[in-house]
């Protein structure tokens, strides 16, 4: 039974429209006009307990709006949403005990106090005993390697340390469902790796369900088998990360190094596939996946070839191509 179930979820925002210039400003002052923006359009998906799912989309695609509806921060305009058997926007205490939302660069810790003080508030709010509090802080701080920093004022911590402390605060009540919005935004490579490793460990240790948005594909490839792709408010892909490549980039790149004795005619090479480049004895083709075996056989049988490599297109390129064209 899915822990997150979303059916035909839709969110429409009224947005004030203002023309540029003084005339527009005066019109805006006396008669404000609004335009309805459909941020999320009839989105449906479900997630099973323990899954780690990547939520991809360009800026303004509707990812954060969907996360806000899943956590109950905003009310959907229509559709059905259920998380851990609760309707999120009712914000029942039992529901709030089971979820958390971690937003990169957004903080809940008190800036001028050590993180431990904010953690004490969370312990009281989530009704943890002193023993539970100490045990959980110790356990999470060890997983995050942040034991020594919890007694320093938050403002004195580095960005990476602060993010780890934020994660500790957000996970102190041991939620079963984690919503993460750009958790590694702005972090250096080491800190990004540490956050990814921690999330993997948290998922394995507590069987938590994770829905994660990130602009860093490394986050997605390291953590998620399954991805949801949203574009202009509509879900355009729901499936395995590998399947995303098959659906949106059903081709492979073949790089060939010819023998020096081989005469090279670009017109002839074009008959093998989409010739991308030709420099000296090096040629690169884009070949459809279903024609790959046949093309490689033809190349090897008819031309003198010293070396041949087949590569998948980088996932970043595929994703940006999908976002750029909005192809479904």
């Amino acid at each position: 039974m899915p822990i997150i179930d979303v059916q035909n979820l839709r969110k429409v925002y009224p947005v004030a429209v203002k023309e540029a210039g003084m005339k527009g400003t005066l019109q805006h002052f006396f008669r404000r006009t609004y335009r309805n923006i459909e941020a999320v359009k009839q989105v449906s998906f479900s997630i099973e307990p323990g899954e780690v799912v990547g939520f991809l989309g360009p800026n303004g695609a509707g990812k954060t709006t969907t996360l806000k509806m899943l956590t109950g921060l905003i009310h959907p305009s229509s559709g059905h949403v259920s998380v851990a058997d609760y309707r999120p926007f009712e914000r029942r205490n039992d529901f709030l005990q089971k979820i958390t939302l971690i937003m990169g660069q957004k903080q809940q810790l008190l800036w001028d106090l050590p993180a431990l003080d904010s953690l004490r508030i969370n312990a009281a709010v989530y009704n943890l005993s002193d023993t539970e509090f100490r045990q959980r802080v110790g356990e999470l701080a060890e997983m995050l390697s942040i034991q020594d920093q919890l007694r320093q004022p938050v403002r004195k911590l580095s960005l990476g340390e602060r993010m780890k402390a934020e994660m500790l605060a957000a996970l102190l009540h041991r939620p079963k469902v984690l919503f993460l919005d750009e958790p590694t935004l702005g972090l250096d490579v080491n800190a990004q790796t540490a956050v990814r490793t921690f999330l993997q460990e948290y998922n394995q240790r507590y069987g938590a369900t994770i829905l994660l948005t990130s602009h860093y594909m490394a986050d997605i490839t390291a953590l998620c088998d399954r991805v949801l792709v949203i574009h202009q408010g509509s879900l355009i892909y729901d499936g395995l990360l590998d399947g995303l490549l098959e659906q949106f980039a059903p081709y492979r790149e073949i790089s060939v190094e010819f023998d020096r004795t081989q005469s090279i005619d670009p017109a002839t090479l074009q008959t093998y596939g989409n010739l991308q480049s030709l420099e000296g004895c090096q040629a690169t083709f884009l070949i459809k996946s279903d024609e790959l075996t046949q093309t490689v056989t033809r190349l090897l049988n008819t031309l003198k070839i010293q070396d041949l490599t087949i590569t998948e297109p980088p996932i970043e390129d595929v994703i940006s191509q999908v976002f750029a064209t909005g192809r479904t």
């Binding site: 806000k68 956590t71 109950g72 921060l73 914000r91 205490n93 709030l96 005990q97 979820i99 958390t100 939302l101 937003m103 957004k106 903080q107 809940q108 969370n122 709010v125 989530y126």
Partner: peptide
């Protein structure tokens, strides 16, 4: 500034 959001997610 949206700072209400994390507070709304706590059961108090």
């Amino acid at each position: 500034q949206g700072k209400l959001s994390p507070l709304l997610l706590q059961p108090v």
